[in-house]
């Protein structure tokens, strides 16, 4: 009997050993470390809402009918874009840079997208900038997760890299197949680099961040601007782009696409 006990004890110990690696792996998982401010500095936060519009109307996929500056009517079935590298400019000359973060704004999920910047030092801010698209580093850093997961359909598989902005729909003026309009902006190497740093102006308003308070900024993203200035796009001539020169032309128009409509302190 004793031998039997010894045998099973041995078996038990052996099994423990065999599984040790598994357990070790589990205990290896670390909580993401959170940077807690150590000094006496005070922090506030701001909610930034991106509101997708066509002129003054809220963008409605499939239902809405819109007119571009050339007078071509069109509708939109897909509208998605990346916002990244958000920077707030303090009146004292310093800047707050959002810790590395990529926002995929997909109108299918609603025409308002909210993001919150917190742990921003309190103070008066008079400028903002962000990238429409994904910086070249993340375009060439291998397999990504989250908003940059290629599963989100914003990744070119043949000329690999992210699609920064995607607008698809129909226009009776379009010369494309089935009157489609298909604009995919992407590409991060010269001369067809479509990454654009956007700096909508604050005007006379300032963003004032205070402790224990959430300020709010509303940004309008106007799809009509994509086709207006400085290059007027006529769907009878230009109904699609997949990177290259046309995408660059539209990316330049996109510099006018974002405007700040209100700031609540």
């Amino acid at each position: 009997m004793k031998q039997l006990i010894n045998f099973f004890t041995l078996l038990f110990l052996l099994n423990l050993l065999a599984c040790k690696k598994d357990n070790e792996l589990k205990s290896d998982i670390k909580d993401p470390s959170i940077n807690t401010p150590t000094s006496n500095a005070k922090y506030g936060s701001v909610t930034i809402n991106f509101n997708n519009k066509a002129g003054s109307e809220s963008l409605q996929l499939n239902i809405g009918n819109y007119l571009n500056a050339n007078g071509d009517s069109f509708n939109v079935s897909k509208f998605k874009y990346y916002i990244s590298n958000i920077v707030l400019k303090n009146a004292d000359g310093t800047t707050f840079v959002e810790p590395e973060c990529y926002h995929l704004i997909d109108n299918r999920k609603g025409n308002k997208y909210s993001l919150i910047l917190d742990s921003v030092p309190v103070g008066t801010y008079n400028g903002i900038s962000f990238i429409l698209g994904v910086d070249s580093t993340r375009n060439t850093s291998g397999a990504q997760i989250g908003a940059l997961d290629p599963i989100n359909g914003m990744f070119w598989t043949w000329n690999q890299g992210y699609i920064f902005l995607m607008l698809e729909g129909n226009s009776p003026n379009s010369v494309g197949f089935n009157n489609a309009i298909v604009f995919h902006l992407g590409g991060f190497t010269p001369p067809y680099n479509c990454i654009r740093k956007v700096e909508p102006t604050f005007g006379t308003r300032d963003l004032i961040l205070s402790e224990n308070k959430v300020s709010k900024m509303e940004i309008k993203t106007d799809i009509l601007e994509m086709f207006e200035s400085p290059s007027l796009i006529k769907f009878a001539q230009t109904s699609e782009s997949m990177g290259g020169p046309i995408s660059v032309t539209i990316a330049n128009n996109c510099l006018n696409m974002f405007s700040i409509t209100s700031i609540e302190n």
Binding site: N139, T140, G142, A143, P150, F155, W158, N159, Q160, G161
Partner: peptide, 8 residues
Amino acid sequence: GSKHIEVQ
């Protein structure tokens, strides 16, 4: 057309 081995 592919710039990284992981996404190839």
